[in-house]
């Protein structure tokens, strides 16, 4: 589904991704861990199409399509969703408005009619109930004044409504209390499907207790230096990153 080969990127003249390769098939859940500043968010943003990142080499294909040729909105309509590490506050834009506009943009691309107001409300409320969100959040400004955890839940709400084929969740678990973590995990697990894939960027092995990954990768200095199964996350928790770095360099 997603094929990243030898990807290299720069921002503000600094090289960040330095030959990163990753292959994700439908039905899989991948976890990406790695030290601060190693390039995890950069990877997520390059895949989503952030223009500040200059791709200097390598390729990214999604369902066989060259992703790097597409605008961010085209990637979204193709079925890619990025859950932001720092969701953006947009006062003055209704949460419900954005959800509906996003859903309709995707539906239009799929050749479907726009969703009617009644159906949308039903869908939104159903997903909010699953995530333990008060329906009042629909009428608030997008992330406006939301707590850190509420913002993350809101990202998951958007994902649950859009039902992307590939969701990249950048530290969606950071700053969540235990109930929120469970709600987020439920949202992610509800999306689990043989036709979909999920990439979780996380610092904590704890998330993986709730969402079982098929693969765990370690990203360091712009490259994936080790991949393994779930047990790698435990090993990292125990031994830190130096251990992998040394092994990779040695």
């Amino acid at each position: 589904m997603l094929d990243i080969k030898n990807l290299q990127s720069r921002i503000g003249g600094t090289e960040i991704l330095r030959g990163l390769s990753l292959h994700v098939d439908a039905g899989e859940i991948h976890a990406i861990m790695g030290p601060n500043g190693s390039g995890k968010s950069t990877l997520a943003q390059v895949v989503a199409g952030h223009q500040d990142h200059e791709v200097t080499g390598g390729s990214v294909t999604f369902k066989g399509v060259d992703l790097l040729e597409l605008e961010p909105e085209e990637r979204a309509r193709e079925g890619i969703f990025l859950g932001f590490q720092y969701p953006v506050e947009i006062p003055g834009v209704n949460n419900a408005y954005l959800l509906k506009a996003a859903l309709n943009a995707r539906r239009k691309h799929q050749g479907l009619d726009e969703i009617d107001a009644f159906e949308f409300l039903k869908l939104a409320k159903e997903k909010m109930a699953m995530l333990g969100m008060d329906p009042k959040f629909l009428n608030r400004g997008v992330n406006e004044g939301f707590s850190g955890g509420e913002k993350k839940r809101n990202e998951i709400l958007q994902m649950a409504i859009l039902e992307p084929e590939l969701a990249i969740l950048d530290e969606t678990d950071s700053g969540l209390d235990i109930d929120a973590l469970k709600a987020v995990a439920e949202g992610v697990n509800s999306l689990r499907d043989p036709d979909r894939a999920i990439i979780l960027v996380t610092h904590y092995q704890r998330l993986l207790d709730y969402i079982e990954p098929d693969f765990v990768h370690v990203l360091s200095a712009g490259r994936i230096i080790k991949s393994g199964d779930k047990s790698l996350a435990f090993e990292l928790e125990e031994k830190g990153y130096d251990w992998v770095r040394e092994a990779a360099n040695g």
Binding site: E71, A76, L82, V88, I90, P91, G92, V93, L98, A102
Partner: peptide, 30 residues
């Protein structure tokens, strides 16, 4: 950043721009 956020939700550049202009004004109305 806000423009990028909206575009990752599938809104095209023009639409995202209009939404943010609306928000800019509506922020004072709200």
């Amino acid at each position: 950043t806000s423009l990028f956020y909206l575009r990752t939700r599938g809104l095209d550049q023009g639409h995202a721009t209009r939404v943010l202009m609306h928000a800019f004004a509506a922020g004072l109305v709200s």
